[in-house]
Amino acid sequence: MKTVLLQDYEPVISLLRPLFRNPLIFELAKRDFTEKYSGSTLGFIWSFIYPLINILIYMVIFGTLMGARLPGSSSIWSYGVYLVSGLVPWTAFANTVTRSSTVFLDKKNIIAKIHIDLPTLPVYILISESITFVVTFVIFLLIMFLTGFAFSQYLLLIPVLYLIQQVFAYALGFFLGMFVVFLRDLKEVVALGFQIWFWFTPIVYVFDILPKFAQQVLIWNPMCAIVSAYHDIFIYQRMPSFFYLALVLIGSIGLIIIDYYIFKKLEKDIRDFI
C-alpha cells in the first residue's frame, strides 16, 4: 500500500522535486546578499554588523539601562535575552512571508522572459533569510556566552523549531504571493497585518501577564506556539510543547497542499498577468 501513500503526498513531493535540481534558487539567494552590499567596501560583513548592533541595543537598553526584568528572574540580561530570542525568529518569519508574498511581482523582469518554476521561486527568499537568521543567532549565542548565560541541551532543538517555522512561512508566503498578483493592495494588507500580528505574539511581553481571555485568543496564533518554544529553550530551559508545534507543522503542510491546488488553477492567469 506504499504507492497509495506516496500518491497522497504527490503534491508535496512535486513541489519539492524541482528544488534539488534547481541551481537557480541558490544563485538568486547568493545574489540576494552580494547585491545588497555590492559596491561597498565591507561588502557582506555588513550583514553581520547590523544584527550585532541590534542585539547589543536590545540587551543593553532593556536590560541594563531600563532595568527591565522578567518575572521571577533577577538577571539584568534576562529580559534582553527574552526579547532577542523571540524577535530574531520572528524577523526571519515575517521577512520570509512578506518578501515571498511579493516575489512574483519583484521578479517580474525574469518571470516575463524565462520559464521559471513559480512554486520554487520563494525558496530563494527562504534560503537567504535563513542565512541572516543563522548569522544573527550565532552572534546572539556568542553574546549570551560572554554574559555568562547558562546553555541547555534543548538548544539542539532550534534547527527543528526553525524548520517548522519556515515551512509555515513558505506555505503562507506562497499563498499570499499568488493573490498579490491579482490584488496588489494585498501587499499593504500583509505589511499591516504583520504589525498587528507582532503585538499578538508574546515577543516584547510575557504570555503569563495577559488576562485570561487574551491568552485564549493567542493560543490560536501559530507564531505564539513557535515564539513560546524559543522562550522555553532560552529562558525556562525546558522542553517546548510539541503538541502545538506538531499542529503548526500539520497545518502548514495542509496549507501547502491547498497552495498547490490553487496554483494549478491559477498558474495560467498568474503568468498572463505578469
Binding site: P23, L24, E27, R31, T34, E35, S38, G39, N109, I110, K113, I114
Partner: peptide, 27 residues
Amino acid sequence: ELGTGFNYEMTGLENIYMNGTLIGMAR
C-alpha cells in the same frame, strides 16, 4: 531573454553565472 537578470553593478563574470543559470546551465 538576451541579458535577462543582468545586474549592472556586478562584473561581467558574475553576470555570466547569473544569466547562465537563468537560461538553464548548470554551475
